[in-house]
């Protein structure tokens, strides 16, 4: 079994266990405000890190290439309050244009 299968199955199993355990534990266990706050902050950190790594790295090297242009256009689209599909499409079109023709 390769890494892709392990990741697919492992992620799916844990994702379900997390959801199901939430439905099965007493509510007061998780009422602590610090826990609630950390829960809101973790996605901010992880998703931001993913944006940076996916934009500026290739394997273990830092790199600036056509992806930066794509993501910059995504930032502009978000600032203009464009809906999600437009943001992703704008990034892809820009990036593809630079990759193919520059």
């Amino acid at each position: 079994m390769n890494a892709f299968w392990i990741a697919t199955i492992g992620t799916s199993v844990i994702a379900f266990l997390l959801k199901y355990s939430g439905h099965s534990i007493p509510q007061h266990w998780l009422e602590h405000p610090k826990l609630q706050r950390i829960n809101a902050l973790i996605p901010v950190a992880l998703l931001s890190a993913l944006v940076a790594v996916q934009t500026f790295t290739e394997k273990n090297k830092l790199m600036i290439d056509h992806r930066l242009a794509g993501v910059s256009v995504a930032v502009i689209a978000l600032l203009l309050k464009a809906p999600f599909p437009v943001v992703v499409l704008a990034a892809a079109v820009t990036s593809a244009g630079i990759y193919n023709w520059l």
Partner: peptide, 19 residues
């Protein structure tokens, strides 16, 4: 897929999720 811009679509999707 790079020729179709998908390598930028992924970070853009993360950005859309965190925004």
């Amino acid at each position: 897929t790079r020729a179709w811009g998908l390598d930028s679509a992924v970070p853009a999707a993360f950005l859309g999720l965190v925004w």
